[in-house]
Design a protein around this nucleic acid. Sequence first.
DNA 1: TGAATAGTGTCTTTCAGACAATATGCC
DNA 2: GGCATATTGTCTGAAAGACACTATTCA
Lengths: 230, 230
Amino acid sequence: MNTSNQMNNESLAQELHHAGVTVRVLLFSISKQCLEVVLVKRDHEPYKGQPGLPGGYIQGDESLEAAARRIVEDLTGKTDIYIEQLYTFGDPERDANEYWVTVAYFALLPEDFDKKQMLKKHGAIVCLPMTDLPTLAYDHDKMIAYGLQRLKSKILYTNIAHGLLPEKFRLTDLQHVYEIILGKPLDKRNFRKKMLSLGLLKPVNERIVVGRHRPAMLYKFKTKDPIFFG
Amino acid sequence: MNTSNQMNNESLAQELHHAGVTVRVLLFSISKQCLEVVLVKRDHEPYKGQPGLPGGYIQGDESLEAAARRIVEDLTGKTDIYIEQLYTFGDPERDANEYWVTVAYFALLPEDFDKKQMLKKHGAIVCLPMTDLPTLAYDHDKMIAYGLQRLKSKILYTNIAHGLLPEKFRLTDLQHVYEIILGKPLDKRNFRKKMLSLGLLKPVNERIVVGRHRPAMLYKFKTKDPIFFG
DNA sequence: TGAATAGTGTCTTTCAGACAATATGCC
DNA sequence: GGCATATTGTCTGAAAGACACTATTCA
């Protein structure tokens, strides 16, 4: 396809200024000690057999975000996953054969989601720790770097952490989420003081027994609507 | 175009999962008392005659950002304009006839740029204050709202203000930029204290005479590379 | 009763925000 | 000399950050 010359004819321009549109999803999740991202093994060329981000084409009757939600639902079976648009990548050098515009979305999987089901059903899927990623198809590594940056900054001024946690959780769980994403330990007293002062959480009148020690109070987010603070 | 059914054939999918790709640019600028955005009068259907955001099609040999830069250069003649990607809008309901994916970019015009030239050369262009915008083509009003939000938040934690100022400026000019964007007056002493403590500025050993009073020291940004603080 | 985590308070420092008087150069 | 803006410092309250001990439950 050659579109480098100036277009004066409207219909010709419409013909040539089209591009393939794909949606990619960065599905982040917290495992015991690290942040993981969902990858699929590509089943056709280019980059066949290599891991890449899950994604697909837009369909003519759905919005970009709806396409992203469909892809996430296909993988997880869940519809209440946190999703936001991340960035749009479009560069003729991404693929020698065609101009692809890829709209990347960013999604969060709660800790209590059973990934085994997903891994079994879609055999080619893996969850890999962010610290040890293989070579990925296309510019998917750039997308992941960008998504991680977004997550790191946005957890500091929004209630986005709810996307990574179960409905009810301990303050300790919440702190672990922050520590894993920020990559550094946090002071327990200061963390709790700050979190509770923000007023985003409400205590659930339940406790959870984890080991042979004092059980912890459970909390939930008052709302999962986007809240900005700081 | 009907793409609502499942695609099993790869080449068919490639045929149908294409969309028209346009780039739109929000070109913000500071005038005496308010923030303005550049609009053009559309010269063909749909929305012919109505004001809308400047934009165009991607060409096959340029990236999305390059397309945005080309559009800005066509309008302004300048290549060193601050640009960043804002958001990508894609929804079949945006246009009944075709699926358009629109990648919106966000750009800043420095205060010393002579807009008269631009308005004269491209007769259909207007700069309108953000507070009094007419009905716009498509969902361009949504894009502007989104861009304004980005500007308001990003001026608080980055050096993005350099895009709206001349190379050299008074601290008073910088303060005006903040006041106009945030829509509220700021305390001069606190503003200067904070700005200088950030270490983003360096004094230029020049003064500027504006009226019959003490001339002000001029400053410039140490770098226009993106800097995040706070 | 011992193991293991839950839960809590003080002090220091830093920063944001309120607030007004003096300095300087031009006309 | 008068006008008009430039430039500067203090005080107060809020929040961040360093830091360690007691409470509770289960096995």
